[in-house]
């Protein structure tokens, strides 16, 4: 599977080249303990951006939920999106694989470029988009089928012609779940624990070999141990996949991400709230030396 790295990627400069943030301690790889001593990951320069977002606004009916976002998401990096509830993080992340198309009232203006293509272009097939750009949801949502069928579902609907057994094993191994489930592949996925279900959902997503994995609060329904396992998995997967993750957990964002986007919301003169991208930078900078006071307030917990 590792041979399937998309050809568009210009490999970023070697890790570490972008300058170590002062607080980095090389041993700590995000093991789930909530130590205040967090090691920040290096953010390589944005070589070969995967997404380029330009003046993006999202409307639900007449309500502009997200306003004028500009950002660039780097290849094979983990980008975290943080911010108070209701500021439009889910709305934003759902733009990247056109899940918002499924909401009849939702409307997107502005541009998202995926490599050199306009994601919202006229001749773009949203089905094809979602095959390349997978998504993991807040609540683990395995299909009410066997573990095997959960993994095999994506390849099957995508017309996979090859050995499914091998693919399932490879995928589960890749997602560090194989040892736990190899003897019960035919049992219902609903019998797994919440953390295992969520890892199964991640495995299911990588089974279709996407380029990007979007995760909307993937750990918010999980305990710290299961969370730590998922964080490990994310770091492991970031070698091959571009990951965008929404999280309410500051430590998580600090631990796993290379870059962090902080969203906030403005209230306009009509009293309506609009989500805005307040600050977007290397994670180390956002957490140690943010340039916007709102970011600092939020990170230090002075703000809802």
């Amino acid at each position: 599977m590792s041979s399937e790295i998309p050809p568009t990627a210009q490999t970023p400069t070697t890790p570490g080249a972008a300058g170590e943030p002062p607080s980095a301690s090389p041993g700590d790889s995000g093991n789930g303990t909530l130590t205040p001593q967090v090691s920040f990951r290096d953010a390589p320069p944005l070589a070969g951006p995967v997404f380029e977002v330009g003046s993006l606004s999202v409307f639900y009916g007449a309500h502009e939920a997200v306003r004028d976002v500009n950002m660039t998401i780097g290849d094979r990096q983990i980008t975290a999106m943080i911010g108070p509830s209701g500021c439009g993080k889910s709305t934003m992340i759902r733009c990247f694989n056109r899940m918002n198309d499924l909401i009849p009232t939702a409307r997107v203006t502005g541009k998202i470029r995926y490599h050199d293509q306009d994601l919202y272009g006229r001749d773009v097939d949203p089905i094809e988009v979602r095959r390349r750009i997978g998504m993991v949801f807040q609540k683990p949502n395995p299909f009410p089928k066997s573990i095997y069928d959960n993994i095999a579902y994506g390849p099957r609907v995508g017309g996979f012609k090859g050995n499914l057994d091998d693919l399932v094993e490879e995928t589960l191994t890749h997602a560090a779940l194989w040892e736990e489930v190899k003897d019960k592949l035919k049992t219902s996925a609903l019998a797994l624990s919440g953390g295992q279900q969520q890892r199964l959902c991640i495995a299911r997503t990588i089974a279709v070999e996407p380029e990007v994995i979007l995760m909307d609060e993937p750990c918010s329904a999980l305990d710290p141990i299961a969370t730590a396992k998922i964080e490990d998995l994310m770091e492991h997967l970031a070698q091959e996949f571009t990951i965008v993750v929404v999280t309410h957990n500051m430590q998580q964002a600090a631990r796993v991400s290379h870059r962090t986007a902080f969203f906030g919301s403005d209230v306009d003169d009509k009293g309506e709230r609009h989500g805005r991208l307040v600050e977007y930078d290397e994670t180390a900078r956002i957490f140690s030396n943010p340039s916007d006071p709102r970011t600092e307030d939020y990170i230090s917990g002075r703000f809802g």
Binding site: I127, R131, F137, P144, V157, V208
Partner: peptide
């Protein structure tokens, strides 16, 4: 549950596949 439909669609299934298989 809607989450089942979303999971299927997010894997690149068409609407028809989602209805028929899930």
């Amino acid at each position: 549950p809607q989450s089942i439909r979303e999971a299927s669609l997010a894997l690149g299934a068409t609407q028809w596949q989602t209805i028929w298989r899930q």
